[in-house]
Design a protein around this nucleic acid. Structure first.
Lengths: 351, 351
DNA sequence: ACAGCTTATGGAAACGATTACATGCGTGAT
DNA sequence: ATCACGCATGTAATCGTTTCCATAAGCTGT
């Protein structure tokens, strides 16, 4: 593959001049510029990004470590992250942790070895030593969706509290009193937060949340299925199951179907994270929708601010309830898409 | 960040020795090795992958350019690719083309600039100059799912012909005679192939495939919706719509629902590519399932063979029909998962 | 005791770019 | 006519590795 030397030789100038042309440095004669450009074209030369990065100590690359690529929520997030990054002149390398802390560490490590300029993470656990080191050692880093408490790292996330309250109001209004939740791993913020929000909302209605109605899931479909089976085996099964993410809701549907039961007649279902398929499931699933693309964009802007020396912003956007038929009583129409006005914008600090 | 020099200084040896320890070269004394390892630990040293790549001219990285991250089929493919690559000591950088040729070119270009060791592509179009150049200039490259005819590039894909025949037999058996298809872009192999297979299968039953029953889609949901609306506006609408991928099937469901019609009573639906959600849609969707993870693994093995100088294998695996209820008459049970014995294994040549 | 190996080590070149510094030249001001 | 300045250009150092080559020391076999 042609190198800058070959271009220089072809154009009859020094490598310095070629470099100057390529980085459009002002002081290059029109003549030299033309000859260099011609040589570049003739040789099909493309600068070696590896060499350039070594010299400049910049890769113009962001690392994105997500918890699970198979989860449509994260895939949508990844897409918006890449889009915004591209607009700002950065590439993105995605690492899929599959909800496994050691895989997450693997990806963080290789990304760091590659000297990415900044890191976007949706942590799978409470923070491995590696992750803590990275955060403290000053790698530009931003948490998205989930975060690790106690670190001075900006967080970009959706706040589901209000939407969960709306959901519980909706369920209460439909006459449901025995509400259960399939939680995510307690080590993740979204895992515990959603349970807390749910518990709090129930309390407002004087409803209990017995331990038996808290299923332990791990954000994967299989765990949703297992938890739902346990609910159904209870002497007094819940009337509603609220899955803390869309994959566990899928697992819940599997479990219900396997028993030959029907949603919502035998048991109602709601989920955190809305996805296009929820419109066409049987029945359409009531869900809490996050402004996912906005989150991705905000997260990118935050890391890039950090990288380029500007003060980064933590951002919290509201999630919204989308009522469908999986909890009973068909509403007249599909709820309107959520709006995404920031509910709360803080300066470089954790909630 | 600590460099190899710092380690050398700390350990009281030369950088050459440090390098030898790190790459476990045989001739290093036990004493030196211990001192180096201690220094590495003390400084938290990690080799700079950028510098290493520059020197060795290897990045141990594969590029994967997929047509659409939001398509669960590709997301599953990406996951298996990354998994297999990791097992073989490679990282993967994913580029999402969003079915747009110019975005695809953008990603191919940046991946090439990064000097990835090999490229896995599922081309969005018939082959841009850039892609053709890359293929001909000897970049280790393998096509997966889709391919560009006329290039000496190994192809790893599923053959859906038999499954499409099975599908048509199934539909015919249910009494359907007016069958329509929503095609993918003609510039993609999967776009045209699936139509061809469908047409051929129809011919076997003496059924026509009028032009009005061939909807032009682009593998995205919106186009599936549009095509389906056009079908429904026909004086004589089809009895069945076969979507050439799962997103267009989603769009078709949207269209049917918007008209207040029902599947399969008013119109039947089938799709290419099976996804977990199809089990829970209303009604469950009959689909043609590809052995996606196997495809990903085979593709990785093929590029790695190419990279490491072994003869690569083109691989074709069979797809299988999974009958559900979206075409009528509920079958007794969900069909068994397809098996994935290779149907056809060729040596470095295009089908 | 010595030639000839093997083993351990360090010095330095190289990978392909960017960039500080030096140089030479033309031009405008004095 | 001279000086100073700015512009265009080239030389060379540098980034962090790997690896070739040279060298020194230790060992074996005669």
């Amino acid at each position: 593959m042609a190198s800058i030397k070959d271009v220089a030789a072809e154009a009859g100038v020094s490598v310095a001049t070629v470099s100057r042309v390529l980085n459009d440095h002002p002081s290059v004669s029109a003549d030299a510029r033309a000859r260099v450009l011609a040589a570049v074209g003739a040789l099909g030369y493309r600068p070696n990004a590896v060499a350039r990065s070594l010299r400049t100590d910049q890769t113009h690359t962001l690392g994105l470590v997500i918890s699970d690529v198979l989860n449509p929520y994260f895939t949508e997030l990844a897409r918006s992250v890449e889009e915004e990054a591209r607009a700002l002149g950065y590439s993105v390398i995605i690492g899929n942790a599959d909800e496994r802390p050691e895989l997450q560490d693997h990806h963080v490590r290789t990304l760091l070895d590659r000297r990415i300029d900044g890191l976007l993470v949706s942590p799978t656990d409470g923070g491995s030593p590696l992750m803590l080191d990275a955060a403290r050692s000053g790698t530009p880093m931003v948490f998205v969706d989930r975060w690790i408490p106690g670190l001075d790292v900006p967080v970009v996330r959706a706040d589901g509290r209000a939407a969960v309250r709306d959901l519980v109001a909706h369920l209460y209004g439909l006459g449901h009193r025995r509400l259960a939740i399939i939680a995510g791993p307690a080590a993740t913020t979204t895992g515990s937060e959603r349970v807390d929000a749910f518990r709090e909302a129930l309390r407002a209605y004087g409803l209990p949340l017995p331990d038996a109605y808290i299923g332990q899931g791990d954000f994967q479909a299989a765990s949703g299925r297992r938890a739902t089976e346990e609910f159904l085996d209870l002497a007094e099964p819940p009337e509603v199951v609220f899955a803390a993410d869309n994959l566990m809701a899928l697992g819940a549907l599997d479990a219900v179907r396997a028993r030959g039961l029907r949603v919502p007649d035998d048991i109602a279902l709601a989920a955190f994270d809305d996805i296009p398929w929820f419109v066409h499931t049987d029945p359409p699933v009531t869900a809490i929708a996050q402004p996912t693309p906005e989150l991705g964009r905000a997260a990118v802007r935050a890391v890039v601010d950090l990288i380029e020396g500007r003060p980064p912003q933590s951002v919290t956007l509201p999630a919204a309830l989308v009522v469908r038929r999986s909890c009973g009583e068909p509403p007249p129409m599909d709820s309107a898409p959520m709006d995404s006005a920031p509910v709360n914008v803080t300066q470089r600090s954790n909630p």
